[in-house]
């Protein structure tokens, strides 16, 4: 029983990270008007920046966290002009291709130039592997608690912004009808830029939690995450912000439980198998593609 609870906490922490990633991804779909395949690659690049900042500051936690969050935000922000002409024409497929190109470039940069292509390992003090709670043979680590609480705080902040502020109203109006939003005088370009910044901020935060959870990062992690994020988004219904959150938690739980209780690593096959079945039964995803 203790082991099960510990596994459950681990799975929830993993699901929270996916939820952050999917939410940022969906925000870019809905408001940014693109299919942001490279979003996860930007997150992995932010993990590298976090690692680098810690390396040069003698493992300063603060420097690492700030570097990760800040890089996510900045990297996301500077990709906006690349997608602007495509978003203007609502060319989602075109944006998908461009995002894949960007993802490939980022992957190769990480593989060739960062840490000479060697896998980076995150300093112990950021990983937070020390047991915070112990019961029987099971432990819950500081990193897991930080991830879950940090994610909850991020979601509260994000959904407050989305549903209780003028900016959030503008975001949702853009998602439902870019044309109506424009008629109402919502500054389209500026609102899109804000969505990149918010998505980047959430990406930066998830980079820190990923660094805690995985403890390492390599150039191939971007593709790996991108597939999962895309799949979770489809599972829930692309652009469905609330649905994406729920679907990400389901994926995290499934993956965590499979890793814990099945021999060998079947997590991908089972997670993606679930998604295939859902998309067969409900082509628009579990919750539909609604803003």
């Amino acid at each position: 029983m203790e082991i099960f609870i510990a596994q459950l906490i681990n799975a929830i922490a993993l699901g929270s990270i996916y939820a952050l990633l999917v939410t940022g991804f969906n925000l870019l779909v809905v408001v940014g008007g693109i299919f942001p395949f490279a979003y996860s690659h930007i997150v992995v690049l932010s993990m590298y920046m976090c690692w680098f900042a810690m390396k040069v500051t003698g493992n300063s936690l603060l420097a690492g966290i700030l570097a990760g969050v800040f890089s996510g935000t900045i990297f996301s922000f500077i990709t906006e002009p690349i997608f602007r002409p495509l978003a203007k024409r609502q060319a989602q497929l075109g944006s998908f291709i461009v995002a894949m190109a960007l993802a490939l470039i980022l992957t190769e940069v990480m593989a060739q130039k960062l840490n000479m292509g060697i896998v980076i390992s995150i300093p112990q003090n950021l990983q937070g592997k020390e047991a915070l709670i112990k019961f029987g043979a099971a432990t819950i680590t500081a990193g897991q608690i930080a991830t879950i609480l940090g994610s909850i705080a991020s979601f509260l902040g994000f959904f407050y912004l989305l549903y209780r502020t003028k900016q959030g109203r503008a975001f949702r109006a853009m998602g439902q009808s870019p044309f109506s939003a424009r008629l109402l005088g919502i500054p389209i370009v500026r609102t899109r830029i804000y969505s990149y910044i918010i998505a980047g901020l959430m990406g930066g935060i998830s980079a820190i939690f990923l660094a805690m959870a995985i403890g390492t990062a390599s150039s191939s992690l971007g593709d790996n995450l991108a597939l999962k994020v895309m799949a979770v988004a489809m599972f829930a219904g692309v652009g469905n912000l609330g649905g994406g959150l729920v679907a990400a938690l389901i994926l995290g739980l499934a993956e965590g439980m499979v890793l814990a209780y099945l021999p060998g690593d079947w997590s991908q096959a089972i997670a993606f198998g679930m998604i295939m079945i859902i998309v067969m039964i409900r082509p628009k995803g579990l919750f539909g593609t609604m803003v």
């Binding site: 109203r169 503008a170 949702r172 109006a173 439902q176 009808s177 008629l183 109402l184 919502i186 803003v291």
Partner: peptide, 19 residues
């Protein structure tokens, strides 16, 4: 009409007052 179907009447009205 260009209304935003998934937002409430109030939210639609408030969007009109964006500026």
């Amino acid at each position: 009409r260009g209304i935003l179907p998934l937002m409430s009447v109030m939210e639609n009205l408030l969007l009109g007052a964006h500026h």
